[in-house]
Amino acid sequence: MNFDNLKKIYQFSESSHKDDYWKEMFGSNDKEWFTHATNPIKNSDTFPACDYYIFESRYYIDIELPGIDVDHLTVKINNHILHIEGYYQTLMPNCSYLLKERQNKHFLKKITIPTYVDEKTINKIYKNGILQLSFSRKE
Score class of each variant (00 low, 15 high):
residue 61 I to F: 03
residue 61 I to D: 01
residue 61 I to S: 03
residue 61 I to G: 01
residue 62 D to M: 01
residue 62 D to P: 04
residue 63 I to N: 00
residue 63 I to L: 04
residue 64 E to N: 09
residue 65 L to C: 03
residue 65 L to Q: 03
residue 66 P to M: 06
residue 66 P to T: 05
residue 66 P to C: 08
residue 67 G to V: 05
residue 67 G to E: 02
residue 67 G to C: 05
residue 67 G to N: 08
residue 68 I to L: 08
residue 68 I to R: 00
residue 68 I to Q: 10
residue 68 I to F: 00
residue 68 I to W: 00
residue 70 V to R: 10
residue 70 V to Y: 05
residue 72 H to N: 14
residue 73 L to W: 09
residue 73 L to Y: 09
residue 73 L to Q: 06
residue 74 T to D: 08
residue 74 T to Y: 07
residue 75 V to F: 04
residue 76 K to R: 14
residue 76 K to L: 10
residue 76 K to T: 15
residue 77 I to T: 14
residue 77 I to N: 04
residue 77 I to A: 04
residue 77 I to H: 05
residue 78 N to G: 01
residue 78 N to P: 00
residue 78 N to A: 11
residue 78 N to K: 15
residue 79 N to P: 04
residue 81 I to W: 05
residue 81 I to R: 08
residue 82 L to K: 02
residue 82 L to G: 04
residue 83 H to W: 09
residue 83 H to I: 12
residue 83 H to K: 11
residue 83 H to Q: 10
residue 83 H to V: 13
residue 83 H to A: 10
residue 84 I to V: 15
residue 84 I to M: 02
residue 86 G to C: 05
residue 86 G to F: 01
residue 86 G to A: 02
residue 87 Y to W: 05
residue 88 Y to F: 15
residue 88 Y to D: 09
residue 88 Y to N: 10
residue 88 Y to K: 06
residue 88 Y to T: 00
residue 89 Q to L: 06
residue 89 Q to R: 14
residue 90 T to F: 07
residue 90 T to K: 08
residue 91 L to W: 08
residue 91 L to D: 12
residue 91 L to C: 04
residue 91 L to I: 12
residue 92 M to N: 07
residue 92 M to T: 15
residue 93 P to R: 10
residue 93 P to H: 08
residue 93 P to L: 03
residue 94 N to C: 04
residue 94 N to W: 06
residue 95 C to D: 03
residue 95 C to P: 00
residue 95 C to V: 15
residue 95 C to T: 15
residue 95 C to A: 12
residue 96 S to Q: 13
residue 96 S to G: 03
residue 96 S to I: 14
residue 96 S to D: 08
residue 96 S to W: 09
residue 97 Y to L: 11
residue 97 Y to H: 13
residue 97 Y to C: 07
residue 97 Y to S: 10
residue 98 L to K: 14
residue 99 L to C: 11
residue 99 L to Y: 13
residue 100 K to S: 12
residue 101 E to T: 14
residue 101 E to P: 00
residue 102 R to K: 13
residue 103 Q to I: 07
residue 103 Q to C: 04
residue 104 N to S: 12
residue 104 N to A: 07
residue 105 K to A: 12
residue 105 K to Q: 15
residue 105 K to T: 14
residue 106 H to R: 11
